[in-house]
Design a protein around this nucleic acid. Sequence first.
DNA 1: CGCCAGATTGACT
DNA 2: GTCAATCTGGCGG
Length: 190
Amino acid sequence: MSVLSKDFYARDPEVVARELLGKRLVRKLNDELMEGIIVETEAYYGAEDPASRASKGLKPHNKLMFEEPGRAFIYNVHNNWMFNIVAHKPGEVGAVLIRAVQPIKGIDIMKRNRPIEDITKLTSGPGRLTKAMKIDKSLNGVSVTSNKSEVYILSNNVKFKICRSHRIGVREDMQRELRFFIKGNPFVSR
DNA sequence: CGCCAGATTGACT
DNA sequence: GTCAATCTGGCGG
């Protein structure tokens, strides 16, 4: 298993969102290790995407979406941290939101961070997984393309079917369906 | 500094 | 299905 490089993210956000499914999100915090399989993502674009943080052009808070791919882009919504990875072709704008993971390592740590009985609700939502894996604004702008980073993505070799739908929770969506998830996986958000 | 929207969640009918 | 709590950060004055 190898760490996904910057090249992986230097493509169209939709392609990156689809291909991130099944990959492994690794969170290292001091001596502790947490890991989850990505089961749900959404793609976001630039000016053409009314739901995007970058829809109104370059601003200090969204400038990461305009910059080099492969870095974490994190912001707050309703007291929840959203974990995105900057992804776009050269000269373009975009990011992929990680909406849900299936926990596979450090589950006890995640449960400590987010006490809950039902494990399928531990990381099945963008705000849930960031809380369980202790991802917050302190990781904004951090590169996810090195295994020395506090957060990165590993390749994986699993088979599954991909479903798609419109994005969740956005005020104004695009015509295209830009949410992707693994068919039948119980850790996908509602 | 105050106002308020928001890529949510959890509780409840 | 509905609904409101809760808070960060953008933006106007």
